[in-house]
């Protein structure tokens, strides 16, 4: 097996994993909201009369999106209009290449790391890529030549730029603690214990950074209560002119961004695949690896579920309040956290 073949298989598996997760994320969101809102949720899509709680619903949705009329307004800039959803989808799903999913596994005499690439600047790469995805939003709203879409675009741009500052400041303090930007090394750092009982996870080392990160992450993904770019009761959203699968791609991108951020939260704050005290149970190394890979998935899933939950319990912020929260609360807190971290590290 050549290196290229392994890489190709990894790409295919990663992409399939991401698509499946994103598709079922839509179902999860619908089911979760249904539980909160005293409803049943989607349960009608069935194959040969088997509906089983709507597990076929995402595919029915995707099919519906594919076969809907793909309407492009006459006044829109057609090339950019078609290009924008692809751009935002591409960059936001590219983040996954640097995420480690577990310890390297051995097949035959080959060691395969569960990570596509492990660059030295993984965190910078990730935030650079996720910032690029805002260009899709800008182009989409702008090329629609619709006033509502334009307003949504302006909001999205301002919001994402401001919250990226808080997000990255909170990550800088993490980098100082972990003294590495490699995600694999960050997880390895967390696989230890403070005073012999407390896992050395990011959430315990940097609780303030965790809070800032999670708030900024919800704002980054443009989800409620920070869903101003697409606030449907005010300006309808930057994708107001989109229909069919192009709209579907935008919607899927939202979920992909949320998945990416829950993956990042798991890696940076929740110890990645580390399950506390599993090495003291005396299981064989292979079993531990397998359990840890599953544990990583479960952690990501729980974080993702939490990020979805917020949407159904808060009204939307107003735009000036959103900016205030970003610049006057989150950024000062994260800078304060950074300074305190620097002092503590200097003293130790």
């Amino acid at each position: 097996m050549s290196v290229w073949l392994i890489a190709l298989i990894k790409i295919i598996v990663l992409f399939a994993w991401l698509m499946l997760f994103a598709l079922y994320a839509t179902l999860l969101e619908r089911k979760e909201s249904a539980v909160i809102q005293d409803r049943h949720g989607a349960n009608r899509a069935s194959i040969f009369g088997i509906s089983s709680f709507g597990i076929f619903q995402p595919f029915a949705d995707a099919l519906k999106m594919l076969f809907k009329e793909d309407f492009i307004p006459d006044f829109a800039d057609k090339k950019m209009f078609k290009f924008a959803p692809v751009l935002t989808f591409f960059f936001s799903s590219l983040v996954i290449i640097a995420i480690p999913f577990g310890e390297p596994i051995k097949i035959g005499d080959k060691t395969i790391s569960l990570q596509l690439i492990n660059p030295d600047i993984a965190l910078i790469l990730i935030f650079a890529l996720s910032s690029m995805s805002i260009y899709g939003v800008i182009l989409g709203g702008w090329s629609s030549k619709n006033k509502y879409a334009f307003l949504g675009t302006m909001r999205a741009t301002a919001q994402i730029i401001s919250y990226e500052v808080a997000l990255i400041f909170s990550v800088i303090s993490l980098i100082m603690v972990y003294s590495s930007m490699k995600l694999y090394d960050i997880v390895l750092f967390q696989k230890a214990y403070l005073w012999g009982w407390l896992p050395r996870w990011g959430i315990f080392l940097q609780p303030l950074a965790f809070i800032v990160f999670i708030i900024a992450a919800i704002a980054e993904t443009k989800r409620a209560p920070f869903d101003l770019p697409e606030s449907e009761s005010e300006i309808i959203g930057f994708f107001v002119e989109y229909s069919g699968i192009r709209f579907g791609v935008y919607m899927l991108t939202d979920f992909i961004e949320t998945i990416m951020l829950s993956l990042l939260i798991t890696v940076l704050f929740l110890g990645g695949w580390h399950i506390p005290f599993i090495e003291r149970t005396g299981l064989s190394a292979n079993w531990i690896k397998a359990i840890e890979i599953i544990g990583f998935q479960i952690k990501t899933f729980l974080v993702f579920g939490f990020l979805l939950l917020v949407r159904w319990t808060f009204p939307r912020y107003r735009f000036d309040q959103l900016m205030e929260l970003g610049w006057k609360t989150l950024v000062p807190i994260s800078i304060f956290n950074l300074i305190v971290t620097a002092i503590v590290i200097g003293l130790l």
Binding site: S33, R39, A224, S233, R316
Partner: peptide, 11 residues
Amino acid sequence: GTMGLSTAPQW
């Protein structure tokens, strides 16, 4: 609902 909290209308 106009403030984006869609749980309340359902209830």
